[in-house]
Design a protein around this nucleic acid. Structure first.
Lengths: 228, 228
DNA sequence: AATCAAATTTAGGTCACCCTAACATTGGTG
DNA sequence: CACCAATGTTAGGGTGACCTAAATTTGATT
């Protein structure tokens, strides 16, 4: 048999765990108990317990003391939540006056309550977008997702022109700062200088010249080469 | 002191109980345990337990073996849920291709997840409507609600012209039937005949002539006199 | 006025999910 | 290579919300 029972509806908590593990475990790197606990604001012991139950349900693979990874079933469920979240964010920004720094919280709650049908109607109203307002890719209904490889602005060579494609943070204060300085997906950016050893990056956008700390620059993912 | 702690967030269950009790207890008539249980699809014993806790919290007034009524705090919370539900239904119908027979379920889940801010944005996008697609009045953000008194179509005298204002059922099959026969809020209806002893009502709308059983006719609330 | 069925409440149990405190494992360091 | 801090797990509780089964109360009816 393939895995657990096919269509038990998942609880809110389980959905959150799966999403967290999805975000924390990249390619072969399992998610750590403490990282999951930190992300979900829970005690590590609680995570261990839940992880055990979800392993038994076939949603994830747990090697004690090593970490957790999603099974195919778990990944499918997680991607569904990611799709919901990103469609919701897109919809709220496009139609209900949300800004990209305020939308996360609302989507975080709604993603557990919406039906598949509603998500698809929102997606349709948006023209089936492939990325959300932060530039994060939106999984298709079937769970496939095209994730392009971008270069952090902190690593773009001086003198190069790039297009900002994705902003990799959920922190509202940073997002607000970026938006105020014209650093949103689609923006054209020229790197005009950089200080060594993790120093600031100097850049020019249509909004003018500015300096950006290395940490922030690392959050801005850019398309190089011929802007396709 | 007035009542319980001011702003403990209510759980989904509690919100459902308050809404149920709101709908079941009209003017001085308390809601019965078994009716609440039936509406929420729970065992009566479970209702007794929850009702006890909510009484202690000051959200409702419970006279054992007699029934339950909302306190002002409870009514405020219930009306907030009613507003959410009806704004959501209105929004989904207006902007996301829902029909009035399919929208209830979706709103039922979303009403627990949306923020006040989102509801107000939806209300704004709708032009702050005072009734939902079924003609049910929408409470204002401050909890006030104007409930007009209408006449059931089953009691409109033969020969009279009325305007259909409100359809009082949540059952999808009936709603679909009504919609197919042009019986939606705003429709002009002429009562052309009626059989005695709970017999059917004959009526004419822009969609033509039709017969309607007394039960269904009782669900259609109409404005008589000069259509204001 | 005694009885009885329906409605309600109490008693005792389960499940999901969280917690703290105590114990176990792991993988560097001195 | 033995030790230790960090990390993870087990043990034991607690809460919210539900259940079934066994009282209890009510009020309508003989």
């Amino acid at each position: 048999m393939s895995s657990a029972a096919p269509h038990e509806t998942l609880t809110r908590s389980v959905e959150d765990y799966l999403k967290a593990i999805y975000h924390l475990s990249g390619a072969g790197t399992p998610a750590a108990t403490s990282d999951i606990a930190h992300l979900l604001d829970l005690a590590p012991a609680s995570v261990t317990g839940m992880v055990k139950r979800l392993s038994e349900q076939g949603l994830l693979e747990h090697v004690p003391y090593k970490g957790v990874e999603l099974t195919p079933a778990g990944r499918r469920a997680a991607l569904k939540m990611v799709r919901r979240h990103r469609i919701l964010e897109s919809y709220l920004v496009a139609f209900l006056e949300y800004t990209w720094d305020t939308v996360h919280e609302e989507a975080e709650r709604l993603e557990h309550a919406v039906s598949d049908a509603l998500i698809e109607r929102m997606a349709l109203a948006l023209g089936n977008p492939s990325v959300d307002p932060h530039g994060d890719p939106i999984p298709a209904p079937d769970g496939t997702m095209v994730e392009l490889v971008y270069t952090p602005l902190s690593e773009v060579p001086v003198g190069e022109s790039v297009e900002l494609r994705r902003v990799e943070t959920g922190q509202a204060d940073r997002l607000r700062y970026f938006a105020e300085h014209g650093l949103v997906p689609g923006a054209a950016v020229v790197v005009t200088g950089r200080q060594p050893f993790g120093g600031p990056v100097a850049l020019r956008t249509s909004a003018g010249e500015q300096l950006l700390g290395a940490e922030l620059a690392g959050l801005l993912l850019c398309a190089r080469g011929e802007v396709r």
